[in-house]
Design a protein around this nucleic acid. Structure first.
Lengths: 185, 185
DNA sequence: GGGAGCATGTAACGGGTTACATGATTGG
DNA sequence: CCAATCATGTAACCCGTTACATGCTCCC
């Protein structure tokens, strides 16, 4: 009966977003995961968030409430249940931690750089470096915001981790650029 | 007729593995992607590699050759075709570069650290730091190997990038551990 | 008038995984 | 003797995406 196949990680991520004690809509969850979760894990598609919410509601891990809008339509906001908090805590503490994955499409291209023109590669690397620096700024801001709210203290330390890592990425790309320029064709 | 939907990135990754000019079996490809590709992109499942090879062969981007083994069975080794090299080069230079993705399951857990015991989190972070340091050593070795072979010069610079990044990860985890210890419950 | 943001969902699809099937050789 | 490595593939399945459907309000 009870389907005891483990939930996909996305389900726990969504549950995690709700574990901060706020009442949030699917739309809110998407915005927040774009802003925060995305930097160290992944931001699911909107439709995916809604389908996970449905599943979690069916399992009794979140509860929904209709909120009338100023227009005619209703908004559904979700809240984590005590059961939901418990399974989440059990997952955090007991489930095996998968190894980290980095998917960098710029590096994939540089790695097969012998098939491309040097100039093209250098442009790509410069763009990646730029993007990393922009992300550093974004994260600096996120950290400031999170530090101001005690309930976000864990977010703050993780965002600080990400800021450092992005800084390192940017520096490593700068170095890579120099190395590419020195490379004999 | 001609299915002009773009190939999945995995197809280009496999093609990339073959673009170094070597004749490789599916098994070889898996070993190599585990050792190298994995650190900055992703290592596909064995079955996935075989299915992509089949597709690429059908498209004429790789060609296969049967090699008799010492036992009774045959081995199939693959080689990239001129056409394959061309589409790969076009992909590297012209296709849009997706933003990088980091999926770190340790950070996901720390981020929702308020649902878990502090001690558990510290253990996880320590393990992640250890793993990163181990990867640094592995990459140092890879870089040495790649530097020795001129055809792997692009691999070498990418692996050097990864080494730096892993070093930064390890340091950031050390810092995170300190911050967690200082955090009021 | 139209695009962006707010807001919620369904349906089709595909990329990639796990599980399974098979079997030889080598080394502890 | 059993585990690991070499070696190739098929089939079922699921996770998550894109595309689609709908419609409001605010602002340029």
């Amino acid at each position: 009966m009870a389907d005891d196949r483990p939930l996909p990680t996305t389900a726990y991520a969504v549950l995690g977003l709700l574990s901060f004690g706020r009442e949030l809509s699917g739309y809110d969850l998407k915005k927040w995961s774009d802003a925060s979760l995305r930097h160290f894990f992944w931001s699911p598609a909107v439709s995916n968030i809604y389908s996970e919410l449905k599943r979690l509601e069916g399992l009794g891990f979140v509860s929904a409430r209709e909120v009338p809008q100023d227009d005619l339509r209703n908004k559904r906001v979700f809240r984590i249940t005590r059961e939901g908090t418990e399974v989440l805590a059990r997952w955090v503490e007991d489930s095996p931690v998968d190894p980290p994955v980095l998917k960098d499409h710029t590096l994939l291209r540089v790695w097969m750089g012998h098939v491309a023109r040097r100039e093209q590669l250098l442009e790509m690397v410069a763009a990646a470096e730029e993007a990393a620096r922009a992300t550093v700024d974004e994260l600096r801001h996120n950290v400031d915001v999170s530090r101001a709210d005690p309930s976000l203290r864990y977010s703050a330390v993780v965002e600080e981790w990400c800021r450092r890592e992005q800084q390192a990425r940017a520096d490593a790309f700068a170095d890579l650029r120099a190395q590419l320029e020195a490379l004999p064709d």
